[in-house]
């Protein structure tokens, strides 16, 4: 269980970064840290001790135990989505930097939620 708790701590570190940082790039980095922790969580869930990687080298020996392939599939999907998120946020960050000359979110503050 220690591993899962540590994983959750990593997630919370990411949340903390997003909420307290004022630098656009730091916010993006915090988001990626959150992504990493979620991926790790999924793969941890699917691990079976003694299991092999889900690639069958010898088709005849089909009774070998492999780790759960489904969470790995999910992580594969989520990782590509994460890259899409990162590239979009970074494109916005570069635009905002050119408009304001800073990455500081307190200076980029024309709108008030």
């Amino acid at each position: 269980m220690t591993l899962y708790i540590l994983c959750f701590i990593l997630f919370l570190v990411g949340v903390y970064g997003v909420l307290t940082r004022r630098n656009l790039i730091k916010i993006v980095i915090s988001l990626t840290i959150m992504e990493f922790s979620v991926f790790l969580m999924l793969v941890l869930v699917g691990y079976i001790s003694g299991g092999l990687a889900p690639i069958v080298v010898h088709p005849e020996g089909s009774d070998i135990s492999v780790v759960d392939p489904l969470p790995q599939t999910l992580v594969l999907t989520a990782a590509v989505i994460a890259v899409a998120t990162n590239s979009m946020v970074l494109a916005l960050a570069i635009r905002l930097y050119k408009k304001y000359g800073t990455f500081d979110i307190r200076k980029i503050n024309e709108l008030k939620g």
Binding site: F11, G14, V15, V18, L24, I27, L31, M34, E35, S37, V38, M41, A78, I81, T85, M88, V89, L92, A93, R95, L96, K99, I108, N109, E110, L111, G113
Partner: peptide
């Protein structure tokens, strides 16, 4: 741009919470 950034960061965080 600013509105979109705010939306993306909060929305991205929400997505990750959902994934968790």
């Amino acid at each position: 741009l600013e509105a979109s950034f705010k939306y993306q960061v909060l929305g991205g965080m929400a997505s990750l919470i959902i994934l968790f």
